[in-house]
């Protein structure tokens, strides 16, 4: 009897939980907000498959048949795949430099008590407050002096001095790598750099993975840097090619939509696969920061 009673109460509870109007409203609001987030991307993909005449005349919901034409037309002036390659080269190399030299520097600050350690570390932290645009004109000048203008190196080399990376990795080293590890390596006769490369670096993997995601996204999306430092279309990364679409196809919206879609779709795919990791790294970065 009492069993039956508790069961009915539980059922009532369940039912009450299901129909609680505030919960439904919250879900509806969440879904609405999610739709607002998604609709522009949907429009981008669908409109990329329509002719300019279609786009100018009515609101479109379903895909059209002009995808091949638009693509054909776009490739006359813009090699988007070349842009992907360039973006990969720039973002990949920048990330590698950021990670390695960031870790090297962080390790130096964390584990060696040389004179001026604290002062120099504060200096590194202070540079985080300085906006990148402050030296924009001077950067243009030094790249010219070093003969690096219009080269990918101009965008890659500065990545070796990323203050946030130093800060981030040092926090991690302070928290997870005991001095004993280094001491025992020294006892085994390993040199200081060998110790770092062979023993420390692998231990930093979790921090570097999170940091790498940040660094890669940041470099991939960089716009003003290449805008100032690169001249040749064939060296342009994606964001600049997207901007070029406006120049070449100012009146052809179908082609512009398609170009934007092609620049965003791979990001959607990568995000769909790695979203947990990416979001996780953002959370770690924030909590550490």
């Amino acid at each position: 009897m009492s069993q039956v009673k508790t069961e009915t109460i539980q059922q009532e509870k369940k039912i009450a939980k299901k129909v609680k109007p505030s919960h439904i409203i919250i879900h509806i609001l969440l879904i609405l907000l999610a739709l607002i987030c998604i609709v522009p991307f949907y429009i981008m993909i669908v409109y990329g498959t329509h002719t300019n005449a279609d786009i100018a005349s009515k609101f479109i919901i379903l895909p059209g048949q002009a995808l091949a034409d638009n693509y054909q037309y776009m490739t006359e002036n813009i090699n988007i795949w070349r842009g992907f390659l360039n973006s990969f080269i720039i973002a990949g190399c920048s990330t590698a430099l950021t990670l390695y030299f960031g870790a090297l520097n962080a390790y130096g600050f964390a584990k060696y008590k040389f004179r001026g350690n604290k002062v120099l570390f504060w200096f590194v932290l202070a540079t985080m407050m300085v906006p990148q645009q402050l030296g924009l004109v001077g950067t243009f000048r030094i790249m010219y002096m070093l003969n690096l203008l219009d080269t990918h190196l101009a965008l890659i080399l500065p990545a070796a001095a990323n203050a946030f990376a130093v800060f981030f990795v040092k926090q991690f080293i302070d928290g997870t790598i005991p001095n004993e590890v280094i001491e025992s390596a020294r006892v085994d006769g390993a040199g200081e750099f060998k110790t770092f490369n062979r023993i420390i670096l692998p231990m930093l993997a979790p921090a570097l993975a999170a940091l790498g995601i940040f660094a890669f996204i940041g470099s991939w999306n960089n716009f003003i840097g290449p805008l100032v430092l690169l001249f040749s279309n064939e060296k342009y990364p994606l964001p600049l090619l997207v901007q070029l679409l406006q120049g070449y196809y100012g009146t052809n919206y179908g082609v512009q939509y398609l170009g934007v879609a092609l620049s965003v779709l791979p990001i959607i795919i990568v995000f769909a696969i790695f979203s947990k990791r990416i979001i996780g790294s953002v959370a770690i970065g924030a909590v550490k920061g």
């Binding site: 002036n77 010219y144 219009d150 001249f231 279309n233 070029l244 406006q246």
Partner: peptide, 20 residues
């Protein structure tokens, strides 16, 4: 072939630094 929007800016840039 460089589109009009960016053309002059790039041209002046290369003329300034006399590279390419």
């Amino acid at each position: 072939f460089i589109t009009n929007d960016n053309y002059v800016q790039k041209l002046i840039s290369v003329l300034q630094v006399e590279k390419n």
